[in-house]
């Protein structure tokens, strides 16, 4: 019977130890990270998502976008995320502290989306919105050969009643995708939210900890030598 008590006790101790070591310790440090106040800008970072984007985050979550897209930029030299233009810097823990559901993802069947808002911002029509609508409506329009499925169900083909909607997107689509005369294709509220979310994705602020990267010895020595030479 003693050995059984030992078994139960041992199991509990092992569980408690791993729980403490992996979760509790980190909850006390990483779990308590706060926003950084930048006196220069008079703002705290990370900034909260705009309301529409926060609702779009739920659309991103429920459509399972994270099955193919990560949201974590790896540091330069570890993979080539930087060379792919997926972010100016690697992601740090503080980037995520305001997000209700952190979807860093584990598969890269599509590109990393952590800074997709930065990539499309101000480009390709209406701050990138049009690009995203076309892409969601039919990925082949913007990215021929892509294996991303179409999200046509986020758009509505409806009869034009009175004035055509300013949001209508059929003008962006090729002839083959045009609705019948008198009809228009408009993004649903969910599509608008999703695109707002995607456009809000940009980790531009350089936190001090983002500089905590290893610099190879030869580089620092080289730098020191150069400084010495200047003197």
């Amino acid at each position: 019977m003693n050995r059984i008590a030992l078994l139960f006790l041992g199991l509990f101790a092992a569980l408690a130890a791993s729980w403490t070591g992996v979760i509790l310790v980190n909850q006390g440090s990483v779990g308590r990270l706060a926003r950084v106040v930048d006196a220069n800008e008079g703002l705290a970072f990370p900034q909260p998502m705009p309301g529409l984007a926060e609702q779009g985050h739920l659309v991103y979550q429920d459509l399972g976008c994270a099955a193919c897209h990560t949201q974590q930029v790896r540091r330069p030299g570890f993979g080539i995320d930087d060379k792919r233009g997926w972010g100016d810097r690697h992601s740090v823990a503080r980037d995520y502290i305001l997000e209700p559901r952190v979807l860093i993802g584990s598969h890269r069947i599509g590109p990393d989306l952590r800074n997709v808002g930065q990539r499309k911002d101000g480009q390709e029509g209406r701050d990138g919105r049009e690009w995203h609508y076309r892409h969601l409506y039919d990925p082949q329009l913007t990215s021929p050969g892509s294996v991303m499925p179409s999200f046509r169900f986020l758009f509505e083909t409806r009869k034009i009643v009175g004035e055509p909607s300013p949001k209508a997107i059929q003008g962006l689509l090729p002839a083959s995708s045009q609705p019948p005369a008198g009809y228009e294709i408009v993004p649903t509220v969910r599509a608008e939210r999703l695109v707002s979310y995607l456009l809000s994705l940009k980790d531009s602020y350089a936190y001090p900890e983002a500089a905590n990267v290893y610099v190879a010895k030869s580089e620092t020595q080289g730098g020191a030598a150069a400084e010495g030479a200047k003197k």
């Binding site: 990270l33 540091r75 823990a93 990267v213 620092t220």
Partner: peptide
């Protein structure tokens, strides 16, 4: 350190150059 994401980075030796 909770703020170090590069495993090769050592805050002690790097503190000066950072």
């Amino acid at each position: 350190d909770p703020l170090v994401y590069d495993e090769r980075f050592d805050p002690k030796t790097a503190a000066k150059s950072a």
